[in-house]
Every structure is written in C-alpha cells, then in structure tokens.
Simulated assay, not measured.
Amino acid sequence: MADDRGQRPMTDEEIEAAALGPAQRVDGQVTLREYDHRWPGVYEREAASIGARLAEGGGASGHRIEHVGSTSVPGLPAKPVIDMLLIVDDPGDEDGYVPALTVVGYTVAVREPEWYEHRVLRKQDLDPSAGSANLHVLPGGCPEVDRMLLFRDRLRRHTGDHELYARTKRGLARQEWKYMQNYADAKTEVVEEILARARRAG
C-alpha cells in the first residue's frame, strides 16, 4: 500500500532506510547545468539498451520506458543526471528485470516497497554530458506515473510554468542541503502548484 510519501518531505531516517548503501548526500549547494541538447540522445541510447536487455531476458514483459525529470524538458536547467521511468507490472519482482539491467551497468540504489514498490537503479560514468542515470521503476496504473508524465508534459508545453520551475530550481540550488532528497522535496510546493494547473487545463 502506498502512503503519502510523494507529497511530504522524507525524514533523514526514511532517506537512509530507502538507500542501499550510503544515501546521496550534498552537504552544500546543488550544481545545476544549463540544458544540454545531447541529453535526449543519451536517453534514447540508454532506453534502447534497457529495452533490448529486457527483451532478451524475457522479463518485465509489456514494459515501457519514458524520459522524465528536468533533462527531459528542453531549455530547463538540470543536474547532469538522466532520469528515466521504467513501467513494469510488478517492481517488487526484481528477478524479472534487475539481472538483465545489471549487465548494462545498472545497480539497485533505492528500494521503497511501501511506496508503490518504487525502485531506483543507478548507472555511473554515463556520458560526457551526464555523469549518471537514475532509472525509476514503478507499476503501470500507479498515480505517481501519471503525476510524473503530466508534470513533464506541462513543462514542455507551458512557458510560464517552465520559467517558474526554472527559477525555483535555481533559487533552491543556491541553498545548503544535507541530502539530495532534501533538495528534491523542497520543490514539492511549486510542483503541486504546477500539477494543479495542468489538471485544470485537462
């Protein structure tokens, strides 16, 4: 069963408990880069590699891969990390997809079984334009999937919300943070504001 984790800040204890190994720390400011036109190509390359491995392995049938996060929105400043979303029937069935993706450099970094069975697989040394990738794994029909895609599409199409989110990111990046998750959680208020407008717009 999913709780309200997506709409409230995670505690330090929750951040540490979800991480396999040390949680991602910042202990300072977050480094953003201006949008890099190479990012979509990096995503396409990784998505093709992931799709091929899953097809060969016979697991995660009917999967879907999406480019999400700030690197998926042209013109938006972002951390040089390619965020992707892998939609499968059951993220808790790691045997169905993790072994295949380990072959191409992905390892499980975050496990949140109480929140839609969310997993994050991470790959390092990705590309000169983006040092790493985060592969979020969620089930089909999950509200968080709809939320992530609606937010991405709103930023791609609406100049005002695109600019608002860019200003918010830059302002928060200049503050001091302990964990990367703290920075992400600090954006929740403006994210929910933008999502509310997107829902009203249909």
Rank of each mutant, 00 (worst) to 15 (best):
53 R>F: 00
54 L>I: 07
54 L>D: 05
55 A>W: 12
56 E>F: 04
57 G>W: 02
57 G>Q: 09
57 G>T: 08
58 G>H: 05
60 A>G: 05
60 A>T: 07
60 A>V: 06
61 S>E: 15
65 I>Q: 09
67 H>I: 14
67 H>K: 11
68 V>C: 13
68 V>Y: 08
68 V>A: 08
69 G>Q: 04
69 G>S: 07
70 S>I: 02
71 T>E: 04
72 S>W: 01
73 V>D: 03
74 P>G: 01
74 P>R: 01
75 G>Q: 09
76 L>V: 05
77 P>K: 03
77 P>T: 11
78 A>F: 14
78 A>W: 13
79 K>M: 08
80 P>A: 12
80 P>H: 01
82 I>K: 04
82 I>D: 02
82 I>A: 07
83 D>V: 06
84 M>F: 03
84 M>G: 05
86 L>Y: 00
91 P>C: 11
93 D>M: 00
96 G>W: 00
97 Y>G: 06
97 Y>E: 09
97 Y>F: 14
98 V>D: 02
99 P>Y: 08
99 P>M: 07
100 A>T: 07
101 L>A: 10
104 V>H: 02
104 V>P: 01
107 T>P: 01
108 V>F: 10
108 V>R: 10
109 A>F: 08
112 E>T: 10
115 W>L: 07
117 E>T: 12
118 H>I: 00
118 H>Q: 08
118 H>V: 00
119 R>T: 02
119 R>V: 04
120 V>L: 10
120 V>E: 02
122 R>D: 00
123 K>D: 10
125 D>V: 14
125 D>H: 11
126 L>C: 10
127 D>R: 01
131 G>K: 13
132 S>M: 13
135 L>G: 01
136 H>T: 00
136 H>I: 00
136 H>S: 03
137 V>Q: 11
137 V>A: 10
139 P>E: 04
141 G>F: 14
